[in-house]
């Protein structure tokens, strides 16, 4: 599948934003980040909403008729994309309320709005993941680890961002929780993606050229000539292919530079190393890692329509 930059950026940025919002929405009512650090919370929510909004705007660029995007909110009964839109929209009021509560110091409001915003963030991530996980023609997306993967990426990148922010407040006193979450998130990301890639590489059952044409009874089916000698929308959209070697290198980059390194950096920060630079670097690497992972998520996905082509 074509890793359209607008979509790759959208899911990375909004995933990180929702991850950040989720952690804050959960941690703040639990007492984390109060008092002197309350401006940290507000800053984090602003960053989260900025990432989410940038991502959503980026996703509009993918549409043929963005001015009609509002229509996408109508079909929540059947469409995960519509549900994602609805969830995203519904997450804004509690998130903004949460921001106000943090900004003006209304702990009671924050205790309600935070979890609501966190729930909204989690729901949106779930809807996003389900858009992909429900596409039957793409076997790599139908894998059971896809949804956990989206959650893990959001949680990991959100935690890494939160840890990096926390390093700049209150002399790092708030750092341990998000740093630990980032480290755990990194490990979870490694584990999940490792398992996912292994499963994907092992081959997955699905339609074949023989079942796509119904010609299997005759023998092995090979394409002879395509309908048209040049490209078309489907080939550009579904026909993207990444070289195995290239993909393997990117996987290593994602696993080690994108997931392991931030986890190690977080552990180092927990162990007392200079937190701000380490965790800032960790957050950047985590975002990069998720970006690479998301790119691969498309680039390595194969669509059944390509069975009809060479």
């Amino acid at each position: 599948m074509n890793p359209a930059p607008s979509i790759v950026f959208f899911t990375t940025a909004s995933g990180a934003g929702y991850g950040l919002l989720f952690w804050l929405g959960v941690l703040r009512p639990l007492g984390w980040g109060g008092g002197a650090a309350s401006s940290l919370g507000a800053t984090a929510v602003v960053l989260a909403l900025a990432l989410v909004t940038a991502g959503l705007l980026s996703s509009l660029a993918h549409l043929g008729n963005p001015q009609r995007a509002w229509r996408a909110l109508s079909q929540w009964r059947s469409s995960w994309l519509s549900r994602e839109g609805v969830a995203a929209v519904l997450t804004y009021p509690p998130a903004l309320l949460f921001l106000l509560a943090l900004w003006f110091g209304w702990p009671a409001v924050a205790a309600v709005a935070g979890p609501l915003a966190a729930a909204g963030a989690a729901a949106t991530i779930y809807c996003t993941a389900m858009i992909y996980a429900s596409i039957k023609p793409v076997r790599q997306w139908r894998h059971p680890l896809v949804v956990p993967g989206y959650f893990a990426m959001a949680a990991f990148s959100g935690a890494a961002l939160l840890a990096a922010l926390a390093a700049g407040w209150d002399a790092g006193r708030l750092l341990p929780v998000p740093a630990a979450l980032a480290a755990l998130g990194g490990l979870a990301a490694i584990g999940l993606k490792f398992a996912y890639w292994r499963a994907v590489d092992a081959g997955m059952p699905g339609p074949t050229r023989e079942s796509a044409t119904g010609l299997g009874a005759i023998g092995r089916v090979r394409p002879l000539d395509p309908p048209h000698t040049e490209q078309n929308y489907l080939l550009r959209e579904m026909g993207f292919r990444v070289a195995r070697k290239h993909a393997a290198r990117l996987r290593q980059i994602a696993l080690w530079a994108g997931f392991a390194a931030p986890a190690v950096l977080a552990l180092l920060a927990l162990a007392g190393a200079p937190a701000a630079p380490l965790l800032s670097l960790g957050a950047l690497l985590a975002l990069l890692g998720v970006l690479v992972e998301r790119w691969l998520m498309f680039a390595e996905a194969t669509h059944t329509v390509m069975l009809y082509y060479r």
């Binding site: 993918h62 549409l63 008729n65 963005p66 009609r68 994309l81 596409i135 023609p137 929308y233 579904m238």
Partner: peptide
């Protein structure tokens, strides 16, 4: 139609 292309994926 907003031209999101999701139906083509599906």
């Amino acid at each position: 139609c907003i031209g999101c292309g999701l139906c083509a994926w599906a």
